[in-house]
């Protein structure tokens, strides 16, 4: 099973390297979103608003980036994957790959965001904690949205349906990471934010376990 997942991961990377335009598209989306905020928010933002705006941008970026993850499949490739690998390996590999994608994307978003919208909010922050929150949030979004992206793709309906299905489910994750990152921004102790990090990690595990359980039913035709 592990070799199967590794094989699938290698396949994902190879595919992504071939369509570099997709990565460019994701980055451009984030940069444009941040730049629009930069243009519309002329005044300096308070810490709370700064934090909220960052997570909203990241949430939309996650929807945009992860919608691809199952939509890019055509019927032929799906059939190939189906005969080649166990569906549970497919979903685990995909979730893993999405998590990596989201971690990279969220760190890049943070970079652009701090560049364009100022980093005053980070002045008092415990930076390692905040980055942990961002990374965990990215992984969390990936965990929740992987199965949702697959569902939307199977329903034959694109990113619109994914947004409708995903928003209410991703909300718990969003609230938890926003609160954790808010604590990190105000320079709270690890003991306090640690509870949130543990909670988010537990939520991630449950979500991936559910996806692992349910995916075979989605896959079969």
């Amino acid at each position: 099973m592990r070799s199967e997942i590794l094989h699938l991961l290698r396949l994902e990377v190879a595919l992504d390297l071939r369509q570099r335009a997709a990565w460019g598209g994701m980055l451009l989306y984030v940069v444009s979103a941040v730049y629009v905020c930069h243009l519309t928010m002329k005044d300096a933002l308070g810490t709370g608003t700064w934090n909220a705006l960052f997570w909203i941008i990241l949430l939309f970026a996650a929807f945009n980036a992860l919608a691809r993850s199952f939509l890019r499949e055509d019927q032929g490739r799906q059939l190939y994957l189906y005969t080649l690998a166990h569906p549970r390996s497919v979903v685990l590999a995909r979730a893993l790959y999405n998590a990596v994608t989201m971690v990279v994307l969220s760190l890049l978003s943070l970079l652009f965001y701090a560049l364009f919208l100022g980093n005053d909010a980070l002045a008092q922050a415990d930076l390692p904690q905040f980055i942990t929150a961002v990374v965990l949030g990215g992984i969390g979004f990936a965990a929740v949205l992987t199965l949702i992206a697959a569902l939307a793709a199977r329903a034959g309906n694109g990113i619109g349906l994914m947004a409708i299905l995903g928003f209410p489910i991703v909300l718990p994750m969003l609230l938890a990471v926003m609160r954790a990152s808010q604590l990190a921004l105000s320079g709270a102790a690890w003991a306090e934010t640690g509870m949130y990090f543990l909670g988010i990690a537990a939520l991630d595990v449950v979500t991936v376990a559910l996806a692992w359980l349910l995916f075979p039913y989605l896959w079969r035709d």
């Binding site: 199965l147 569902l151 299905l165 489910i169 718990p172 979500t207 349910l214 039913y217």
Partner: peptide, 12 residues
């Protein structure tokens, strides 16, 4: 599909 979404959403 509806059943999958229901189970997933209910637990979360």
């Amino acid at each position: 599909l509806a059943a999958i979404y229901n189970v997933f959403a209910y637990v979360l």
